[in-house]
Amino acid sequence: MAGLILRLAGPLQSWGEHSTFQERDTQPYPTRSGILGLLAAAQGRSRASELTDFLQLRLTVRVDRPGVFLTDFHTVGGGLPRHQTIPTAEGGRRPEKATTLVSRRHYLADAAFTVAVEGPDELTGKLAAALRHPVWPLYLGRRSCPPAEPILLAAGVADPVAALKQAVPLSRARPREQSTVAVDFVYETDIRDPHARTHLLDVPVSFDPLRRTYRPRAIKVRTEQLPAELCCGRGVDQMKALATYATRISQEEE
């Protein structure tokens, strides 16, 4: 069973889990629903498509750079006549002096994550092909958050979780006079696990807007010591290291 290595990095990311109306949250790391939504978009699945095959996938997230939390304020509906403003839940219109709605949208700025995707070879193979030639544009949680580079870093990796710990370049500066660096990992676990750090409502049952449904998932966050030599810095050095790794894995896959 081989897996995929995904790299999720960009100017902005937003991985909502309990967003409601004017308040759009983000988790400090990618959610399962966000990653599976990205894979579904690559394959061109409709929002009404079945997602049962995705239950076979297991995700492990490595936090290369946690990024900085950012809040953006949006206003909607201001300056319009009442009949053109946002409808209320009852189907009417807001009073003329209250037509403007303020929403807060939360993002991670300059964050970078590397994700191991484990699953049956047939499924991960199809996902790899879709990520190389996506049907629909891919984004990091929200449509306003495009990725900074190709998302698929490697396919056909025999043990993608081990690769995150031993081989995949780490997008951060190398510490001086240290042989290891502390890195957070987000693992999926059993919902009854007493060591689970939190429970997220982010396992998609349906993305259909008329019957959007999610199930809970347990995760645990663990800090592990990785070889400092994995740190590849930023900018050109980072891109060279990632390209070298991706090329090597691609040659091994062939």
Rank of each mutant, 00 (worst) to 15 (best):
A2F: 08
G3D: 02
L8D: 01
G16D: 15
S19M: 15
T20D: 13
F21D: 15
Y29G: 00
Y29D: 09
R32Q: 04
S33T: 07
L38M: 04
G44V: 15
R47S: 02
L57I: 06
V61D: 01
R65Q: 09
G67M: 03
F69P: 15
F69N: 04
G77Y: 06
G78M: 05
R82N: 01
H83V: 08
H83P: 09
E90N: 13
E90A: 12
A98K: 15
T99G: 06
R105H: 02
Y107G: 01
V115I: 06
A116G: 06
V117W: 14
E118Q: 13
L123N: 02
L123R: 08
L131A: 07
P134I: 12
P137M: 15
P137C: 15
L138R: 12
L138I: 04
S144F: 09
A154V: 00
V161N: 11
A163Y: 05
K165Q: 02
R172C: 01
A173C: 04
R174V: 03
V183I: 10
D184T: 00
P194Y: 12
H195L: 01
L201V: 09
V205M: 07
R211P: 03
K220E: 05
K220V: 03
P227L: 04
A228K: 10
C232Y: 03
R234P: 02
G235S: 07
G235D: 07
D237Q: 10
Q238P: 00
A241H: 11
Y245F: 07
Y245K: 03
R248S: 08
E252P: 08
